[in-house]
Amino acid sequence: MKEKSVTSLDVAKLAGVSRPTVSLVLNNSKAVSLSEETKQKVRNAARVLGYKPNSAALMLRRGATNTVGLVITEGRSLQVDAFIPLLHYAIAGVMREAGYSLLLETFERKENQNPYADLVVSHRIDGLLVLSPSTDDEDLKALIEQDYPVVLIGSTGHPREHCVFTSTREGTGAAASHIMDLGHRNIGCIPFSPPGFAATDSRLRELREALSAAGIALQDDAVFHGDFSAESGHAATLALMKAKPDTTAIFAGNDTIALGVIGALTSLGLSVPGDVSVVGYDDLPFSGYIAPPLTTVGIDADKQGRMAAEMMVRRLRGEAIEETRLAMPSNFIARGSTGPVRR
């Protein structure tokens, strides 16, 4: 009977690490940082088991794949956020024209595991696009600092990042001014995700600053976070209106959340905008055609996707990139979901 060959999975189990970590150590990859203790555990396990990587497979993996990964940092958003398909379509078109395939992956963080390792360490991709990066993602930070070809769709503020993000400050300021001009002073907010996502945190901060400049404070107990879906926006709005029944205007973190906000207000017997005005973000294709048409801060998903993909192609080709942080403008669009406060 032929003896079963030792695999990297056997080494991983003995060392108490993930399989990608074994590949990282035994390939002497510098794509991510690992402690010397972890490296030694892997080497010891490989020596005990007599494991030797397949050299032919390693050579194949080290060649260019002509594939770029697009990582969605919150997998649930794929099911509910209409912004992502628009972005994906734009990125895929640019990559296809440049001769690259696009691999769509979701982000899954587990304790003591690098969520990018399977893509990066195994050389399944040549570069990585990351949507909605988190400001406290240390594994992503390590990739950026080691000059791996990463382009962020959004920004963590890292000084060495390559990114394309939408500057929502101007659009948020215009939306806040619009709401205040209509007489609203009791204002609530339903961000599109839990805290920690760069876009969520920046939109909330900008809204607070715009209102504060006019002498209006957005209180913490008037902010109820959604969780990407319209359903979560619905639940958060019910909680907001229970805590703050005098709320007359709500800023939703994006247009998907705004659908849930409007639905919740309707279920409470409140009219939009008669009783409560609603503002969204993104200007998704449906936003101008719901009832009432949604007032929103417009973000060009197609343009952002194309710009991020073009930056990635230039990185992969080794071309010089003078502006590594590209900011796109946002624009405020007033529609029927906002109106004067009811006296």
Results as ranks from 00 to 15, higher is better:
Leu207Tyr: 03
Cys189Met: 15
Arg185Ile: 10
Asp139Gln: 13
Phe251Thr: 09
Ala249Gln: 03
Arg315Ser: 14
Asp147Lys: 12
Leu268Met: 15
Ala249Met: 05
Gly183Val: 05
Ala264Cys: 09
Glu319His: 00
Val164Phe: 03
Gly215Cys: 04
Met59Cys: 09
Ala64Leu: 12
Ala174Gly: 09
Met311Gly: 03
Ser23Gln: 06
Glu319Val: 00
Asn254Leu: 09
Ser23Arg: 00
Tyr89Ile: 11
His158Gln: 04
Pro195Leu: 08
Ala230Val: 02
Val130Ala: 02
Leu102Ile: 02
Gly173Arg: 09
Arg205Asp: 12
Leu131Thr: 02
Thr266Leu: 00
Gln79His: 12
Asp220Thr: 01
Arg208Asp: 04
Arg96Ser: 15
Thr67Asp: 01
Ala15Ile: 09
Phe224Cys: 11
Ile257Gln: 09
Ile91Ala: 00
His234Tyr: 15
Lys41Asp: 09
Lys244Val: 13
Ala92Thr: 01
Ser132Gly: 08
Ile125His: 02
Thr237Lys: 09
Met95Trp: 02
Glu231Gly: 12
Glu138Tyr: 11
Ala12Ser: 10
Leu265Glu: 08
Lys244Ala: 13
Asp246Thr: 13
Ser271Leu: 07
Leu182Tyr: 07
Ala142Arg: 07
Arg314Val: 09
Gly233Val: 11
Asp246Arg: 12
Gly336Asp: 10
Arg43Met: 15
Pro273Lys: 01
Pro85Ala: 09
Gln113Ser: 14
Val11Ala: 11
Ser18Asn: 09
Ala98Ser: 13
Ala320Phe: 11
Ser277Asp: 04
Lys4Ala: 14
Ser232Gly: 10
Ala175Lys: 05
Leu182His: 08
